[in-house]
Design a protein around this nucleic acid. Structure first.
Lengths: 340, 340
DNA sequence: CTGAAAGCGCTTACAG
DNA sequence: CTGAAAGCGCTTACAG
């Protein structure tokens, strides 16, 4: 391992103090003669000097790094978020350190501690929902933006989507296609705001459409267990089938996929046996069997807005008031709700 | 922002020196009285002390962090790799810092520099292929493991899969299904080893099966442009269709998806118009239209093995000799190659 | 326009 | 078993 060249080496070679080299590194050119500046520049090049970020961070308390905490990185949703975040951060010269809590509140806590220990400058969190108090406190010390998932009653900045709108779009679409019965399949809410909001909106919509003889129900299913999904689908069809047209809303992308798999195993067909609307546009929505009608979320934009907001907080001193953004969604109609 | 408690505060409260607290933090209990140890432990708890990683790293030159550089994080393949890497690293108390080069060799170089500046302990790289010399040098200074993509002739540790085996499995399968013509669609190789290896193996297989009247050709297509994919598919079918059974090998998951989309737009049907084998098992392979026969790579295992190897290098002093692992793949047969 | 010096929060020989 | 002291590589008031 060849000896690392440090700021002291540059200073010696360029016949200046380390303070001056440091000023150069930090772009403080106004307080520096052009000759000095040029000399330092060349010396750095010749020596191949690279500033040590760790030392800079220790001294300045700024790491130029944003901590991103995802609840489940296997979800394509997380990747879309990450894309938006990454684009903005790298544009502003910030790095990202990424963690996956796998929905574990304990891990979330550990990761937050670890990132604090690394002097992270700000957080973007798709929270498990299990550390509300901690995150509320955290946001008083350091910029924090929640993405996708809210903390109820919290003042932490949040960028999310309009789940009520999404559910209404889905249900309206199904009613227009002639469904008189609409069911929703959702995973256990477990304090995760979009799940709660979608279920809530679903029930509200059902209430307000009772006069149209709309019949709704929500099924909370453990999605990881395909057998449970299968038996729910089967019971749905047995209960309603034949008599009236049935519509199903899958509360997120994982549910959509599970429903498609279950239907395949059962030998049913969509949209013949029931219509299906999913949440989340994915790579494969247009090539699945059938292609999937979805409520498309602007996930990339959520990530982008979140990162922009962290940058704002980082670079403006005033305490702006907390924001709570809900981006609009849109419905993309495909074969899974095609009738006739 | 409340004042951070530092090691000095703990030392004062516990009536010991910072050196002793430091020893405690580093688990050097054998050179410490039980009483002292207990006192420090309690003091840390009371004060809520958290060691500052940045200072530790600056002093010890170990960051307990692995730099992971992916060529395209949008690819589900990358996520599977990451899962394997994450599992092993976190088990060993290492953090991950993740970057996405988006296939840009320039970004790859920048990220490597940035990570070095952060005193990363080791690298896991799914390389763009554009920094072979740099990475070769790098691996002399610090543990580096390449994943999925090799550097030709390099001695850098590499965990990849057996691409030749994958191609042979795909082509054998297609021949068994009666294909006399087999084409491959691949993106521009651009120095990316799996692409090169798959094309190479494809041609070799074609050569050695000439006596079976096997007719092969490779189409290099810019996959991002769906119109180009469409026109290739169309020309394939026009050229061969009707006369003989045609099989297509999609050189990776992105190609598979593009082919499915193109076929859909063209109004053709798989497997009626041609059989299709893809690379990479994905979430949706079983629910696409048609469900997809694929060469499944043990991607998670590649990531896991790579991380294990970095850990080995980190914790053993001897210079073990470079490794070059190729994991086996398997073929999963589904409707896209079902005949009769 | 520039430098000497202190210090960010740790770890680690060295000495006892 | 424990402490005093040096130092990791920077940045930043302060002084000139």
């Amino acid at each position: 391992m060849k000896k690392k060249v440090a700021i002291r080496d540059v200073a010696q070679s360029a016949k200046v103090s380390t303070a001056t080299v440091s000023r150069y590194l930090n772009g403080k050119y106004d307080t520096m003669s052009v000759a000095t500046r040029q000399r330092i520049k060349e010396t750095i090049k010749i020596l191949g000097y690279k500033p040590n970020d760790v030392a800079r961070t220790l001294r300045s308390l700024k790491s130029k790094t944003i901590g991103v905490i995802m609840s489940n990185i296997l979800n394509p949703y997380s990747i879309a978020l990450l894309q938006g975040i990454e684009e903005i951060c790298s544009k502003s010269g910030y790095n990202i350190i990424l963690c996956d809590t796998k929905e574990s509140a304990d891990k979330e806590r550990e990761f937050i501690d670890m990132m604090l220990a690394k002097n992270i400058d700000g957080f973007i969190i798709n929270t498990t929902g299990g550390n509300s108090d901690l995150i509320n406190e955290l946001s008083k010390e350091i910029p924090v933006v929640l993405v996708g998932r809210k903390i109820p009653g919290s003042l932490v900045d949040t960028i999310a989507i309009n789940n009520q709108q999404g559910v209404y779009l889905a249900m309206n679409h199904l009613m227009e296609k002639g469904c008189q019965i609409i069911d929703m399949i959702s995973p256990q809410p477990e304090g995760i705001s979009p799940r709660i909001e979608r279920i809530e909106a679903f029930r509200q919509f059902g209430q307000s459409n009772q006069q149209h003889a709309l019949n709704i129900s929500v099924h909370i299913v453990q999605i990881e267990d395909i057998d449970k999904v299968i038996s729910v689908i089967q019971s749905l069809i047995h209960k309603h089938g034949m008599y009236k047209r049935l519509g199903l809303v899958a509360a997120n992308g994982v549910v959509s996929l599970a429903v498609l798999k279950a239907v395949k195993q059962l030998g049913y067909a969509i949209p013949q046996d029931f219509l299906l609307v999913g949440f989340d546009e994915t790579d494969w929505s247009s090539v699945s069997n059938p292609s999937l009608t979805v409520v498309a979320q602007p996930t990339y934009m959520v990530g982008k807005r979140a990162a922009e907001h962290v940058m704002d907080r980082l670079h403006s001193n005033e305490q702006s008031k907390p924001i709570a953004v809900e981006l609009n969604v849109e419905l993309i109609s495909r074969d899974s709700t095609k009738v006739q």
